[in-house]
Design a protein around this nucleic acid. Sequence first.
DNA 1: CCAAATTGAGAAAACCTTTTCTCACGGGAG
DNA 2: CTCCCGTGAGAAAAGGTTTTCTCAATTTGG
Lengths: 349, 349
Amino acid sequence: MVSDAESAPVFAKPPVTLREVAAAAGVSVATASKALNGQGRMTAETRERIRETARLLGFRPNSLAQSLLRKRSFTVGLLTNDTYGRFSLPLMAGVSDALVDKGVSVFLCNVEDDQRLGQLHVEAMLDKRVDGIIATGKRIDRHLPVDLSNLRIPVVYAFTQPDPGAVGLVSDDAGGARLAVEHFLRLGRRRIAHVTGPAGFAVVHTRAEAWRGVLKENGLTTSEPLLGAWSEGWGHEAVEKLFGKAGRGGQPDAIFCGNDQIARGVIDALRERGIRVPDDVGVIGFDNWEIVAEATRPPLTSVDMNLASLGREAGLALLSLVDGQPAAPGIRKLPCRLVVRQSCGSPPG
Amino acid sequence: MVSDAESAPVFAKPPVTLREVAAAAGVSVATASKALNGQGRMTAETRERIRETARLLGFRPNSLAQSLLRKRSFTVGLLTNDTYGRFSLPLMAGVSDALVDKGVSVFLCNVEDDQRLGQLHVEAMLDKRVDGIIATGKRIDRHLPVDLSNLRIPVVYAFTQPDPGAVGLVSDDAGGARLAVEHFLRLGRRRIAHVTGPAGFAVVHTRAEAWRGVLKENGLTTSEPLLGAWSEGWGHEAVEKLFGKAGRGGQPDAIFCGNDQIARGVIDALRERGIRVPDDVGVIGFDNWEIVAEATRPPLTSVDMNLASLGREAGLALLSLVDGQPAAPGIRKLPCRLVVRQSCGSPPG
DNA sequence: CCAAATTGAGAAAACCTTTTCTCACGGGAG
DNA sequence: CTCCCGTGAGAAAAGGTTTTCTCAATTTGG
């Protein structure tokens, strides 16, 4: 039977301090500290006795005290404005994953697109003496609504526009696009269209350039990319434009889409027109948003930006900056990866 | 012109300390502290002079030192296993949102479904002296892979299975289901089917019970819910089952779906069969996953679990626990909200 | 057997802030 | 003129840990 008196104030007893360990082991705090950290000189027997005592008492050093002294909090801030998006989550997981093993914890700071909120969070992080900051967002070509340029701690930008002279990590969108188009070429497709998002996004142009580049390199005729919205609806419309005038020989046998939602719209529209995917037309998307890619019929081949890796790299980059290792400023691009499902077809052989 | 020597080691200068402020103002640290905190006694003139000095020097108190003394770190941990999911993100945003104004920062800890990782994160949080922990996940009826039952700090569970005797916050799934079914009834629908996820999920039964309950209360005949998967594919199949035998008079005029993906599959399948939505059959989904709900044709009416509010409430609950206010243990259910779009139809009038 | 070197361990300062005491000084009351 | 009290401000301890310095005791070398 558990009494109320027993269960209620269960979180009252304070943690064990080094002083208590020292007392229990019959040594000074200095000796105890050195014993546990493998520092200083003492008999192996003493060291072991202290360690055993600490273990028995469940001693865990107070990070706050350690941080105060060492001027390292083993804490970093993660700033994002991608509240509901799907980009920041894998990225955050990657960051967290890279850092937890080194004993570094991550402050999650959601700043929306709000200056005031950004300011608030940055100040809170600074006050808590974070060792560094990772800035991330939903767009590679936009700044967060905060100024991180004159902080006295290192900053790494991942999947967001870096300040000039700062360290930035982004996905290699051009490379990702090449991956898709070259895959189509290997499968024998020759008339490859590109349906993508609005002109206002930098990645729209990056990917379109790469698409066009691969076609040119292979001596194929190029056309204009179809710019629209990042939506299924636009995918439908685009199919209308591409296949509207029936019977024309110039209709594509492959469509490279700017994201998975567009691709989904494209595939649905093609099916409704009785055009078979992948037999008549192959489709490749971008983002590899699994829940969408796997629900299309057939399942969607898509370019994955490896956001978790990006997050991991960002975490590691920040850490080495914190350790005083100067990092080459500028933007580093991390490779994408093509996840092949069934929407792109199989080799002709 | 900015010289390299100037821009490179920009994060070398240490922050201003209270001691420096005191020196600059010609007082002791004690007086400086009191001046800035509005404590102690001194001439208004002295206080103002110190404040002005602090402002000029850009002094910000070191949270680490404050925490050490006050035994409050103004920091909480947020534990989740929903790495890529869409539930935890709005929830986390809500938590962060509720706490940032009170100067509390949130440690993001992604534990996947990994015991070791969970252990690691909890220990890191404890070492950093978080004031409390919020546990959240992707399923209401599953525990996180960590034992939080004997911590000496308060824990609040949000959208995950709480330990017995703990404080838990979840969405009111039964209420949400009622919202949907009653909406159908108000629109004059009478034969309302229910297509939902696998039997292994508690919410499947909760929502199904509520659905059946509303039908019974209104004297309508009830049937068995169709249990399957949380996927579009299952939505398709379910339509097959419901409308397979053509001509039967008992075919539904409304379908309440267990999530938005199922609803999406249902709507697509209905369209392919030439059944008009919402004219012939109304459809309502669950989760209000906007990116899906808005892409269905027609846009999907759906039950929103108000996850951001849930997160906010969880944050506030934890805070009052931290402040020593005893909270009633047990599970508190927060209301859902029906977001009406076009898939459910309009009133007959 | 003595001086020197080494060893084991503790004292104390430092990190930065808050808070409780203490104290000097000036003014008012008796 | 003395006593007491209120006022303004500083000294010091506390919080938990790390690290440098110091010192006594023991061992080594001559």
